[in-house]
Every structure is written in C-alpha cells, then in structure tokens.
Nucleic acid binder design. Structure first.
Lengths: 95, 95
DNA sequence: CTCGTGTATTACGTACGACGCTATACTCTG
DNA sequence: CAGAGTATAGCGTCGTACGTAATACACGAG
C-alpha cells in the first residue's frame, strides 16, 4: 500500500540518517510505522538503484545520504502524485 | 510504484465508469497508462473489498460505482499521502 | 544483578499484487 | 477488408511489502 521507498527518500531529504532514525522520523512525519524488514529491504533497493549511498559506519549505525538521482526521483514521484491528490480531493468534495 | 486502486477510486469519484473509461480517464488526469491486466485485476480486488460495486452491464460495458466505504478509503488514502507530499516538497526546497 | 525497554541491524518466508502479454470480440473508418 | 479504437478476461512472472525472529548493545528500574 504505502511505498516505503518514497517515505525513506522524504526522510533523507532532511539530511543524512541511519535506518532506525529513518524509522522514527517516518513515524512522526507520516504516522506510518514501518516494520524492520520492510525498512531495510527498501534501503537496500534504494542503494542498488543509486538513489541513496551508504556513509562510513558510526559504531552500530549505518547512515545513508540521498544522491542527486535520489533527489530527482523523489521530485518526480511527488510531481506524479500531485495531480492524483488534486483531482482526488476535488472530486471527493463535488459529491 | 503506482497504486492502481488509488487511481481507479479517484476516477470513480467523478462518477460511474466502466473499465475502459477508467483507463482513459486515469491517463488524462494522472498521465499514467495502466495495462489492461493491471486495471481489471485491481478492479476485481476493489470489488472484493467492497470499495466499488458492479452495476448492471450495458452491452459490452461493465460499469462500476464507488461505495461509501470506497469513498472513505479514498479519503483516508489521500489524507495519509498529504503529509508525505507536504514534508517531501518542503524538505526538497530546503536544500 | 537481572529484567525490561530502547536502539540498531540482518535474515527468512510468505503472500499479494503490479505488469506485460495474449486472446477474444465488436464497431467504425479508410 | 485491413487497421484502429473500444472493451474485457486470463495467465505467468517477478518484485516487494510485511511480519517475525534473531542478534547485540546500552540503559535505568527494581
């Protein structure tokens, strides 16, 4: 239902974060609590696609940074979503 | 990536439509061209969940109507998406 | 001291569904 | 009559969302 990659990119747009920090951030800004499996699997996919990259590990933490491609992808996703939101809420009101 | 059920509900929020009409409507308002398989599979799922219901067939056409539950679900989906959009675009601008 | 809670990541299995493709069938236009 | 547009159904595959459990460390409460 919810695309975790979108949530992760939106979270990393704020700045570098490690997995668990993304988890709590997403929970606060989106109200969605991702499962651990969902989160880390999505992170791996994002990394494979070059949308985020791993930074040097800090102790137990594995921080990630959004790449320019990731930023562009987030931008595209939001742009694609915008008309659906607009039309959807407009039509809901009309009836 | 794209949730076809969201697109279908947004389309049916305008009024009753049959499958092919949804297809063209979604293409115009969202710029997304759904495959036939994707569309009808998603329609079937929406019907099973009680979010839409089939109307009496007109010739070859099988029109569908959104139920109150479907309307509520669309509302919930859009409400869940809104903060993600808001935070996402805000954070994109900030950097 | 140990028990529970919070932080942090990894691995595994399952089930759903997105998507492409093909088939079918009717209608209309060139 | 060939081709494009309308309209739906079925099938197979692959990706992936999600739950669950395992591991490990740090901390405070009891």
């Amino acid at each position: 239902m919810n695309d975790p990659t979108l949530l992760i990119l939106a979270s990393l747009a704020e700045g570098d974060k490690h997995g668990y920090a993304i988890l709590t951030d997403v929970k606060t800004f989106a109200g969605v609590e991702l499962g651990a499996g969902t989160l880390y699997a999505a992170i791996e996919r994002l990394e494979n696609r070059g949308f985020i990259k791993a930074l040097p590990a800090e102790e137990r933490r594995r921080p990630y940074r959004m790449t320019p491609q990731g930023r562009q992808h987030l931008k595209d996703q939001l742009a694609a979503l915008a008309p659906v939101m607009r039309v959807g809420s407009l039509r809901l009101k009309q009836s």
